[in-house]
Every structure is written in structure tokens, then in C-alpha cells.
Simulated scan of single mutants.
Amino acid sequence: MTKVKYYYDPDTLSYRKIEPKKSRKYRNIALFVIASALFGFMGLMLLLNTNLLNTPRELALQREVNNFELRFELLNRKMDQMEQVLANIEDRDNNIYRLYFEANPIPEEQRRAGFGGVNRYKDLEGFNNSDMIIATTRRMEIIQKEMVIQSKSLDEITKLAAEKEELLAAIPAIQPINNDNLTRMASGYGWRSDPFTKARKMHWGMDFTAPRGTPVYASGNGTVSRADNNASGYGKHIRIDHGYGYMSLYAHLSKYNVRRGQQVKRGDLIGFVGSTGRSEAPHLHYEVWKDGDRINPINFYYGSLTAEEFDNMLIRANQENQSLD
């Protein structure tokens, strides 16, 4: 209710009502409307910046944003696990696999090398969550690169393993005559008495005494490079090229069971014991060559002899007696 104001009129000696001017009335109304509009606008801005007055679409978008933030957090946790697993694989790769196959470890700076050059994440800038999106994307790309490097390393290890398997199969690793057929190991590698001249000379192989016709077996995988009687003193003999610098020789045979160029595997029957060439009695003269040099064959019987049998052979092989060729 509007207050009614009065003033004292000395002429009439009475109080008269003050009538407000129309201009002031209109001004007051205008001020009230402006103030109401101003406070209304400020209240609207305040409400628009809170969740009290969001539209259904805005609320749905906010839920999607919250969901994406949760998914990014879960993704980062999974990447933490992936990095731990990958680090374990890399450690085993460098310190076990590559060490075993005599391959150089992959340098840490090569595994952890970043991405240089232009800004790869420019399209991801300018958003409310750009820092989180860029950091997650960078981590994913680094993990992807590390996985590619590790995958290539494992491919290399697989190849080295296959080559290692071939090497182990190729090395002359068994006795060329079965123990059941062996009369005795007549002479070993080293200085021995020549059966014909009685002079002391180097004996470059091992002599296995066995009856004529006793089977002779390939001591490792390889290719028959010679099967002839054209080498002085060896008589009928066979040479097998095992690759990796290894070659084995089987001399004084009675006959062959293979031909030149034939592929053989460890344990294949290749010939039979005889006494051809410069030989005093039926036996097999067996040699192992590595990179063109003759080496002691006794170091290559781990594939066919027990520890006790090997010890007995080692004792006999070291006896400086007379060879049979």
C-alpha cells in the first residue's frame, strides 16, 4: 500500500494531500522494471552455470562426457597392466632369449624412442579434456611402437631358434658305430705309433675296431660331399658336409650305402666297416673337421654315450698305443 503524504497549508490552516507528479511515477516504474530485468538476467546467468537449469539434452551430453572420462580412466589402467607385461617380456627377451642365442640385446633408447617432428596431436587440442585425450593417445602409440619392436625381436628369436635347432642337428654328436657292434676303441686322437713304420706320428682321428660289414652311421645331418676311393690312405671313405664349418670323415669302408650329393640325417646308415686303403685290420677311422682343421672327435659323443661309457672311452682314447692306419 502506497504511503500517502501530506503538507501543512498555512493559508487554510489545514493539512493537504501531496499529489505525486506523473513524471516521477513513470520514472519509478521504469527504475523498477530495469532493476527487475537486471536481477532477472543475473539470476538466469547464475542458473545457466549450474546444473539446476540444464536442458535434457545438456544433461545427456554431460552423462556422456562423464562416461567417456570413466572409460579413459579404465583405459589408462589397462595400459598400466600392458606396460608391466611388456616390460617383463622385454626383460626376458634381452636377458634370456637373446642371450641364449648370442644375439645383441635391443638398446633401451631404441625401445623407448619417442615421436619427433611435427605436432602429432594438433587436432586433439582446444577441448575441455584435451590434456587427458592427448596423454592417453601418446601412451597408446608408444605401447604400439614398443609392441612392434618386440614382435620383430621375437621373429628374429624364432629364426635364431630354427637355426640353432639346425645347428644342433648338424653337429656330429653320436658315435658312428653302435656299442653293441664295437669290439674296442683301438686308438684315439693324438700322437700314436704308426703300424707300418713304427714311427711316432699324429693320428688325426679315432679308430673303432669292428667286424667287417659292421654298419656305419652318419653322426649328424648333412650332405655327402665325397664317397670314393681317391684319397691317399683312406681307401673307400665318405665325407659329410654338415654346414656351419663342420665335416665328418669315415674311412677304410668295405662298401657305401650313400652317394655323393645325398642328404643324410643323424643315425642314417651310410656304409660298412672294412679294411681298404692304408689299414692293418678291419676298423673305422673317424675324423671331425671344423673350419678346415681336424679336431678331436671325442668331444662330440654327447648324443649317444652315457657318462660312464664316455669316461671309459676317454681313458682308452688317451692311451698312447699303436693306431690301425
Rank of each mutant, 00 (worst) to 15 (best):
K3R: 01
V4I: 14
K5R: 08
Y6W: 15
Y8F: 13
D9L: 11
P10V: 03
D11V: 12
T12M: 08
T12R: 06
S14C: 13
S14N: 08
Y15P: 03
E19M: 02
P20A: 04
P20F: 02
S23R: 07
Y26K: 15
Y26H: 06
I29F: 13
F32Y: 06
I34G: 07
F41C: 15
M42P: 00
L44Y: 15
L44K: 10
L46W: 14
L48G: 15
L48T: 09
T50G: 11
L52V: 09
L52M: 00
L53S: 12
E58T: 10
A60F: 10
A60M: 15
L61Q: 15
V65K: 14
V65F: 11
N67R: 15
N67E: 09
R71Y: 01
F72W: 08
F72V: 02
L75C: 06
R77I: 02
L86M: 12
N88C: 03
I89T: 11
D93Q: 13
N95A: 04
F101Y: 15
N104I: 07
N104V: 01
P105W: 13
P107F: 00
R112W: 04
R112P: 00
G114R: 11
G114E: 01
F115H: 05
G116P: 07
Y121A: 02
K122T: 11
L124K: 07
E125S: 12
D131M: 13
R138P: 00
M140S: 01
M140K: 03
I143T: 14
I143V: 06
K145D: 01
E146C: 08
M147A: 09
S153K: 00
K159F: 03
A162L: 14
K164F: 09
A173R: 12
P176R: 11
P176N: 14
I177G: 10
R184N: 05
R184L: 01
M185Y: 02
G188I: 04
G190K: 03
K198R: 10
R200D: 05
M202T: 04
W204D: 10
A210W: 00
R212I: 00
T214W: 04
V216W: 03
Y217V: 07
Y217H: 10
S219K: 01
S219V: 06
G220W: 13
G220P: 00
N221V: 04
T223C: 06
V224P: 15
V224W: 08
S225M: 10
N229S: 14
N230M: 14
G233A: 14
Y234L: 05
I240A: 02
H242G: 15
H242W: 13
H242A: 12
Y244P: 11
S248D: 05
L249D: 05
L249E: 11
Y256K: 09
N257I: 11
R259F: 02
R259C: 09
Q263N: 03
V264K: 12
K265I: 07
G267S: 06
I270K: 10
V273W: 05
V273N: 00
A281Y: 09
A281L: 11
P282Y: 12
H283E: 08
L284G: 08
L284A: 11
H285A: 06
Y286W: 10
E287C: 10
V288P: 10
V288C: 12
F300A: 07
F300E: 02
G303W: 13
G303P: 09
T306S: 13
T306W: 09
A307K: 14
E308H: 08
L314D: 03
N318Q: 13
Q319V: 05
L324M: 03
L324P: 02
D325G: 11
